Amino acid sequence: MLSRGYDDEARKARHRLENPPPPPSKHVRHLWQAFTDLCATRPVNGMALSPLSRLEIAQWERDEMIRLEPWERRAILRLDQEFIAANTGTGASKTGPDGKPATPVEES
Rank of each mutant, 00 (worst) to 15 (best):
I84K: 01
G89M: 00
P21T: 08
H15P: 01
S3C: 14
I66Q: 08
A86H: 08
P101V: 05
K26A: 13
L17G: 07
E64P: 02
D8T: 12
W71G: 05
G99V: 05
P20Y: 03
S53I: 06
P43F: 05
R16L: 12
A92P: 05
L77F: 01
N19Q: 09
D7A: 15
P97N: 11
H27V: 01
H30Y: 08
G91N: 06
P23I: 02
L31F: 02
A13L: 12
L52Y: 06
R14F: 11
K94H: 14
L38I: 01
P20S: 06
G96M: 05
D63Y: 10
R42M: 03
R11I: 01
I84F: 02
A34C: 10
L68M: 07
W60A: 02
T90S: 12
D98W: 05
R29F: 12
I57M: 05
R14I: 00
F35Y: 04
M65Y: 14
P97G: 10
R67A: 13
S25K: 04
W71P: 06
R14H: 09
A48F: 07
D63W: 09
P23W: 04
R67N: 14
T36L: 11
E69L: 14
R67F: 09
S53K: 07
A10C: 09
L17N: 09
D80K: 01
M47E: 15
K100E: 14
S50V: 07
T103N: 08
H30P: 03
H30M: 03
Q81C: 08
L68Q: 03
A40C: 15
G5D: 11
E106A: 13
I84Q: 05
T88K: 12
C39F: 05
K94M: 11
L2Q: 07
E56Y: 03
